[in-house]
C-alpha cells in the first residue's frame, strides 16, 4: 500500500511538472479550454454522487416540510452545513426547545468522521492554493471518496 502511495505521489508530481511546461507551451490555450478539460474529466466521476445528492436533498426537503419547517430552513442548512446526516438531525432539533450548545455538540459528534477524512487529505490538499478553504469546507462523505480515489488526469489540476 505504501509503495503505491509513493508511486502515485511521484506520478502526480511529474504530472504537475509537465502540466506547468504544457501551460508555458500553449499560452494561447484559453482558460475556457482548461475549464472544459477539467469538466469533462471530472463529470463522469460525479454522476453517481449527483444521483445520491438529488434524492437525499429531496428527502431532506420533504422531511423538513413534514416537520412544519419553512423552505428556507433546509436551503440554509444545505448551504451552511453541507453534511447530509446532521441536516436531518438538526431539522428534528429545530422543532424542539432552543439549545444551540446541544446542537453544536450533536453536530460535532455526528460529523466527527470528517476528522479522519481531513487527516487522510492533509497531504493532498497541501499545494492547492486558494482552492484549499473550499475543498476543506466541501469535504463530505461523497467528495472525500471521489477526491481520495480518483486519479487526477494530466493537464487538470487537483480541486
Amino acid at each position: 500500500m505504501a509503495w503505491l502511495k509513493t508511486r502515485m505521489r511521484a506520478a502526480q508530481g511529474s504530472g504537475n511538472a509537465s502540466q506547468r511546461a504544457g501551460e508555458r507551451d500553449a499560452v494561447s490555450a484559453s482558460r475556457r479550454v482548461v475549464l472544459r478539460r477539467a469538466f469533462t474529466a471530472a463529470f463522469p466521476y460525479t454522476v453517481p454522487i449527483m444521483a445520491g445528492f438529488v434524492f437525499l436533498g429531496m428527502a431532506c426537503g420533504i422531511y423538513a416540510h413534514s416537520l412544519g419547517l419553512p423552505a428556507w430552513v433546509p436551503t440554509l442548512m444545505s448551504v451552511l452545513i453541507f453534511a447530509g446526516s446532521s441536516e436531518f438531525v438538526v431539522a428534528s432539533m429545530l422543532t424542539g426547545a432552543f439549545n444551540p450548545l446541544q446542537v453544536f455538540i450533536t453536530a460535532f459528534i455526528v460529523n466527527a468522521r470528517h476528522l479522519f477524512y481531513g487527516i487522510s487529505m492533509l497531504e493532498r490538499f497541501r499545494h492547492v492554493g486558494k482552492k484549499r478553504p473550499y475543498l476543506v469546507f466541501g469535504m463530505c462523505d461523497e467528495t472525500f471518496s471521489i477526491n481520495y480515489a480518483t486519479p487526477v488526469p494530466k493537464g487538470v489540476d487537483r480541486g
Binding site: 430552513v73 440554509l76 442548512m77 451552511l80 452545513i81 453541507f82 453534511a83 446532521s86 438538526v90 432539533m93 429545530l94 422543532t95 426547545a97 432552543f98 444551540p100 450548545l101 446542537v103 453544536f104 455538540i105 450533536t106 453536530a107 460535532f108 460529523n111 466527527a112 468522521r113 470528517h114 476528522l115 477524512y117 481531513g118 487527516i119 492533509l122 490538499f125 484549499r132 476543506v136 469546507f137 469535504m139
Partner: peptide
C-alpha cells in the same frame, strides 16, 4: 423557536461541522 433562534441553531450546527472538517488542517 423564533426565526432568529432557528438561524442561530443552524449556525451552531454549521460551526461544529466546519470544525470537524478544518481541525486536522489547522
Amino acid at each position: 423557536m423564533t426565526v432568529l433562534q432557528q438561524v442561530a441553531t443552524i449556525l451552531a450546527a454549521a460551526a461544529a461541522t466546519v470544525l470537524t472538517r478544518a481541525l486536522p488542517f489547522a
